[in-house]
Design a protein around this nucleic acid. Structure first.
Lengths: 229, 229
DNA sequence: AACTGTGAACGGGTTCACAGCC
DNA sequence: GGCTGTGAACCCGTTCACAGTT
């Protein structure tokens, strides 16, 4: 598990000593969005204080997070906005486009297929699947829905590595397995169920009702406390 | 910030010594879902091992999490499924219905208004708003879209405490402020922007492209590593 | 014998304080 | 003087090992 000290590979590319903590990775997209916003206002330099403020975190955290990428700031000055945008984009792999598969074209699947934030960030829905025969061929945007039966063939053909599951919960596990078999390495799951996938697969879960239930917990608490007074 | 030792209020209700850690709160809804699933299969008792397996965590974590709620298990036996469902539901405030407001009826807002997982968990979309005059009155399910201008009046009238923001990013901060002014205490934000709200307001953020960007980071890494070999 | 409940050890992430550089 | 970069201290959450209970 231990990483070697700073070093160079035979090709000469620099290898980072410390891996970037997961928590930091999750914040990089937020910094990136803020920086792009600053750039659109022609702002050229930003301090960790300003960046923190706009990102909803505190300044030391920003500095530590950015330091994992390298020493891209200038002491006494701050960070160059454009340069930092480039570095974070590169780190997040956003200098390339990612074709994404979307499985399940119900309510949510359709909404996701039209979500503008995806193409803006370089994610292009390159294939959409549904199990309902009668919907096959239907256009969503400029994409035709394919039948789930064609999943493996279509994904391999298109070289898709990232997929979104927006099926009902009951279909999600089987879908995940087929995606993995078709060469997908990263899955974003919206179905409200726990998925089991091989170790090597990156899986993220977004559960809409879980989020509301967490809020309800705190509401419920507040109400309880009020009654006790 | 410090909690008093176990104690009773004047009303006699037990006050928990330790507050439930946030991380635990976030897992309770998952346990609940699994337990309801077990109940529907007429399973009466479950061990931490089985519950952990189905919830995608490890057994000690399940036991520790549940121990924050109280000692609801039986040593040598396990947890009574129905009883645990009741206790977790109560803790999460799901023994009551929560009316929820939904602001922004675009793509995503519409999908959320039709999301079946919400009513199943006791969350009822009780008001839906949009800024587009021409859409006011339009029915989504059995709910008519109201104009955003009526937000304060409508929310107070309906006593709504939880709201979902599904507006474009540019409108989200103003929406949040109006929600807070209208008495909302918990907000689930889908707009891709950082919101600033008063300390007392519970805010959760779901950012769809951030999730994909995190996956892209790991894809990018894997690809980089491959090239170096 | 089986399984829960929990103090203690551990580890990742956050915060702090300040050294380092412009 | 201003702001970054980072070791060290701290904190929360996870894991472990086992005592406690049926």
């Amino acid at each position: 598990m231990r990483e070697p000290p700073p070093d160079r590979t035979r090709s000469g590319a620099r290898v980072r000593a410390r891996p970037i903590p997961e928590a930091t990775v999750a914040r990089l997209p937020v910094y990136l969005r803020v920086l792009q916003d600053l750039a659109s206002q022609q702002i050229q330099t930003v301090s960790s204080e300003r960046l923190a403020e706009a990102s909803g975190v505190n300044p030391p955290k920003v500095r530590k997070d950015l330091s994992y990428l390298g020493s891209y700031g200038t002491r006494g000055v701050g960070y160059d906005v454009e340069y930092l945008i480039y570095q974070i984009s590169r780190e997040l792999g956003l200098t390339q486009d990612w074709p994404v598969a979307l499985v399940g074209m119900g309510n949510l699947g359709q909404a996701l297929s039209g979500y503008k934030g995806f193409p803006e960030r370089g994610f292009r829905i390159a294939a959409a699947f549904d199990s309902d025969e009668s919907r096959v061929g239907e256009k969503v945007g400029n994409l035709a829905i394919e039948h789930i039966g064609d999943l493996e063939r279509s994904l391999k053909e298109k070289g898709i590595a990232i997929a979104i599951i927006a099926t009902p919960a009951a279909a999600a596990q089987e879908t995940a397995e087929r995606l993995v078999a078709a060469g997908v390495r990263s899955i974003l799951n919206f179905a409200p169920t726990v998925l089991t996938v091989p170790e090597r697969i990156h899986l993220r879960q977004v559960d809409l009702s879980v989020e509301l239930q967490i809020l309800a917990f705190y509401e419920q608490r507040a109400a309880g406390r009020k009654r006790e007074v």
